[in-house]
Amino acid sequence: MKLGIAGIALRLAVIAAAAALALGAVNSVTAPVIKERKARELQEALSSLVESGTIGDKQVVEQHPVVQGFYPVSDEKGEPHAYILDLLSIGYGGEMKLLAAFSPNGRVESVVLMENEETPGLGKKAENPEYMEKYIGTGVDTPVPFRKDDLSREEADAVTGATITFRGIGTALSEGSEYVKEQLP
């Protein structure tokens, strides 16, 4: 059977429409599950970052390349004793989202790497809590490391193969620390 160009286009359209329908059905089942999981992961990440205090609602920061928003953390008296910053950075595989707790003087207290597209086995290692140890406590007396020269030999070896991930995280934390020092009370 010979098909004209319209017939060919129609058949391709039918296949595409059927595929779209099937995907819509799958998406309607998985979308709420994914959304709920993301919200739960965010809550878990936030509460893992600070040992005590109440985490306030997110304040959106506009027109800052790195700091997307922050969550004030207040102690029992309602005084702010830390800030959790929502940071956007660029890694090897595109955007990386970080959540980092800073004390009000800009000291890095804890960091978790959230959504990212880093290479499994290399940049992805930054998801491990041990990876972030080299950043903790920096930002006030010692600058946040973002070049390999800033690291000890062992730490530098550990980021080999994923220098861009390391630099991206370091730069974002450094920006975050500056933001806390300059913009937040």
Binding site: A19, A22, L23, V26, N27, V29, T30, V33, I34, R37
Partner: peptide, 12 residues
């Protein structure tokens, strides 16, 4: 289509 299904199911 099948890849997207796998991706969504894995994510969920």
């Amino acid at each position: 289509s099948f890849v997207t299904i796998v991706d969504l199911v894995l994510q969920a």
